[in-house]
């Protein structure tokens, strides 16, 4: 009988914790584990290219369950392809809804052109009908409220949410919602209403202290916005029940102009929101995203940007501001596949125009169909195929990459088509650093839990 042989998975990555422990991660299973300095040499030996043969010791057996070691007859390429196919399940749907395409801000780096206002009543009706007609086959529905500035159309969000909640409750569908908002209209009263409408995750961008933020994220008439946004967030922190479940990702877009202000700003945020796990940071470099001022933007050199993201993130963690949960979910299997590349995801414009991508709204190849008032969708499947079938299957480098199951070569199909370059994620580029930060965040949370237990 042939001796059983185990090989290290090609989807492994490893890092080292601050206390010398080994951190191991697998992008196909999403498992992350740590090993003591005593276990480390045994583990590293088992993960050598030649693998291990025969019966596995108690130390090595868990490596199989987590996917770090795989039987030598397993086709990991087939695993990755199967994972890709699993995105074609028809019982999940993600809709990015633009209740308005207008915005009260005119941010310097914005790529949008704000061609129209509120969603037409017939499009609203079409959306309600579409979800009602799909309900029988759905198990999971997630809605991202987007725009424009979605809070300009707060009443429409309410009207649509009430209908969606009724439909999803009736059909026992797992429903979740999130919102990308500038935070200007996010008053306490409206925040409470949004929570009732199951909007639980909010991305709100603040680009530094008042003088920095107001110089780049200002009102259409030029007025400042910092004080209003911070005032709203302070009220939410002070007045919303401590046990209420939500996450606010404070996104900080940085470039050469505000680079030196990010840490002082994080200090300021930590004073206001530190040690409340619901307020989290999400740092990203400003890019040339297609706006009219692209040529004037003082964007960071990409090497600086890729380092600073994690430097700022860790700085926040040290001050009591957690890293956004987006980061950890981005390294899970399929976690970095863009919505534009997922078969059951659509962007719905205020006029019923259907898109795949939120960042190329004026490009013909992104106009993939139309939502009709009766709830049907008129879809150009050739255009959809362009977004959904690119990525790993046409890129040999992606096929050989440890991160393949997480992004499938499709983190940003738009970046690939515009630049001809591979759209690797910031997480993948600094995976050792990211794994260390996930370990560190875990340590901080455990210490907090211990403190809570001791107090009670």
């Amino acid at each position: 009988m042939k001796t059983k042989r185990w090989l290290p998975s090609r989807f492994n990555a490893m890092s080292q914790a601050d206390n010398g422990e080994l951190i191991l991660y697998n992008s196909y299973t999403g498992a992350i584990a740590t090993f003591t300095p005593e276990e480390k040499p045994i583990i590293l030996s088992a993960l050598k290219r030649e693998g291990v043969s025969g019966e596995l010791s108690d130390t090595l057996l868990p490596l199989v369950d987590s996917g770090f070691l795989v039987p030598d007859d397993v086709d990991e390429d087939a695993r990755a392809r199967f994972l890709h196919q699993s995105l074609h399940r028809t019982d999940t749907m993600h809709l990015i809804v633009m209740p308005t395409e207008a915005c009260n801000f005119r941010c310097t780096y914005c790529y949008q052109t704000f061609p129209r206002g509120n969603m037409n009543p017939e499009v609203q009706e079409g959306l309600k009908q579409f979800i009602a007609q799909k309900a029988n086959s759905l198990q999971h529905l997630s809605i991202s409220w987007f725009g424009g500035e979605p809070m300009l159309a707060f009443d429409i969000i309410g009207e649509l949410s009430e209908s969606i909640l009724e439909t999803t409750a009736k059909h026992n569908i797992n429903y979740s919602a999130e919102m990308t908002t500038n935070g200007y209209f996010l008053t306490l009263e409206k925040f409470r209403a949004l929570l009732n409408w199951h909007v639980r995750r909010f991305m709100i961008t603040i680009d530094g202290m008042k003088e920095f933020h107001d110089a780049r994220r200002f009102l259409t008439g030029g007025g400042g916005t910092f004080d209003t946004i911070i005032g709203n967030l302070k009220a939410i922190k002070a007045e919303i029940d401590k046990d209420e479940d939500f996450e606010i990702y404070i996104r900080i877009n940085f470039d050469e102009d505000n680079l030196d202000n990010v840490k002082p700003f994080i200090d300021y945020l930590a004073d206001l929101f530190g040690n409340d796990r619901r307020f989290q940071t999400f740092c990203r470099p400003v890019g040339r995203w297609g706006g009219e001022h692209d040529g004037d933007l003082p964007i960071c050199d990409h090497r600086v940007a890729e380092t600073k993201i994690w430097e700022f993130t860790e700085y926040g963690m040290d001050k009591g501001l957690p890293m956004s949960s987006i980061v950890e979910s981005a390294i899970m299997p399929t976690g970095s596949v863009c919505y534009a590349a997922k078969p059951h995801s659509f962007v719905i414009g205020a006029n019923g125009q259907l898109y795949k991508c939120t960042c190329s709204l004026n490009e013909d190849f992104n106009h993939v169909g139309r939502l009709l008032p009766d709830g049907s969708m008129d879809i150009d499947y050739d255009k959809v195929a362009f977004w959904v079938t690119g990525g790993e299957d046409k890129d040999a480098n992606c096929q050989a990459c440890f991160f393949r199951p997480a992004c499938q070569g499709n983190h940003c199909p738009l970046y690939r088509v515009r630049t001809g370059k591979r759209p690797c994620t910031f997480e993948k580029k600094k995976i050792k650093q990211v794994l260390r930060l996930i370990w560190k965040q875990n340590q901080i949370q455990e210490a907090e839990q211990l403190e809570t237990i001791e107090r009670s």
Binding site: I23, N26, T29, G30, A31, I32, A33, T34, F35, E39, I43, T59, P62, L63, D65, S66, G67, R79, F82, L83, S86, L87, R89, T92, H140, E328, M332, P333, T334, G335, I438, W439, N442
Partner: peptide, 15 residues
Amino acid sequence: MKILKPAISPQQAAN
């Protein structure tokens, strides 16, 4: 070995 994140199946991942 301490597990920070458990392994999940392709079906769970695709939710």
